[in-house]
Design a protein around this nucleic acid. Structure first.
Lengths: 191, 191
DNA sequence: GTCTATATGAAGATAGAC
DNA sequence: GTCTATCTTCATATAGAC
């Protein structure tokens, strides 16, 4: 599994070969096929496990800051770290690339990553709204949560995906996290 | 080229075979190789041409509305139509998937699509700022332009990429376009 | 459970005739 | 310029011994 994970995340489904996986694992071809019936089944197992890791890392995000700005900023910074990590980018790449061939895997990824985060954010927005700190009546809580997540992730993720190998600096991550929070709070914070 | 475009956009580089392209074009293997030396070269030619189409469609966006809201809304709606079109989604999928193997192609795509649009939007934001209708001093004009684009594209593009075949309704596109504009104007419009 | 060895098919690319 | 036929390599998957 570890070998398959490394190979599939790096090359995607089609370009990955069972030879690579077999060599990375230090076993023979037949050993791989004794555990998983086909290359497809192994791929699905790998991506499913990776989605579980993703969910866990997102659900582990914790915030006990004071102001809404601080909560959102902490959330933005930690989320950027996850999504811009090498494995985060590789997972996104592979899932999107092979979505037409593995639609179930892609759906599961959406639920594991973006959807889970939307829910986490929506919960925090609810609390802020209840405390009277913010107001989302213009678009609704769920839409607002998704808009915030996309503000945070958008530009940097796209740059990373189209400039493979070049990692954005901590300063850049901080800049975009703050810009997203500033925008969101200006739009929905009470004056 | 038309046959190669169809096959590469549907399957990506690795899963596409020269046989598919040859059959789709109604010619023989050797004919393909008499025009392009390798599969790689054909792929690069196809994606480059597609990026040119992308630039052209973005630069063709025109707006002569009155209020900043209307300009941004028209822009958002037309951009969503481009980016959520079958060829727009396929291009994104393939470019991102094969970025590690074809980094130059991926860089060109970023410049053709997201970067070009950022520039177009930034120009309009400049005009709005000069007219005193908006104020981007908090984050800067370029960052603001990118934030707006990501508000517009974010959620729907991600859903389309992870739910292949299911096209969002016109009502959904309208909902997200309006939500993005509302958020952006609330954040940066003069009161 | 794991190995070596191999079956079987398909991929990218070319030779040479028309 | 295009075709048919073919070369070579490498892919997935399996058979059978240890």
């Amino acid at each position: 599994m570890a070998a398959a994970r490394s190979v599939f995340l790096r090359h995607g489904f089609s370009a990955a070969t069972t030879d690579m996986i077999q060599q990375a694992a230090g076993v023979s071809k037949a050993t791989v096929y004794s555990h998983y019936p086909t290359k497809e089944a192994l791929f699905i197992a790998v991506i499913d496990a990776e989605c579980q890791r993703f969910i866990a890392s997102i659900r582990a995000l914790r915030f006990q800051s004071t102001t809404p700005e601080e909560v959102l900023l902490a959330l933005a910074q930690e989320y950027l770290e996850i999504v811009l990590s090498p494995s985060g980018l590789d997972l996104f790449r592979v899932v999107v690339a092979d979505a037409p061939r593995f639609p179930e895997v892609a759906r599961k990824f959406y639920l594991a990553g973006p959807h889970t985060l939307n829910e986490v954010v929506a919960t925090h927005l609810d609390e802020a709204a209840e405390r009277g700190e913010m107001d989302f009546s213009a678009v609704g809580r769920d839409v607002a949560a998704s808009l915030f997540v996309n503000l945070v992730r958008g530009e940097l993720q796209l740059q990373c995906l189209t400039h493979p190998g070049s990692v954005p600096s901590a300063a850049q991550r901080d800049l975009w996290a703050r810009a997203a929070v500033v925008t969101f709070v200006r739009a929905y914070g009470k004056r």
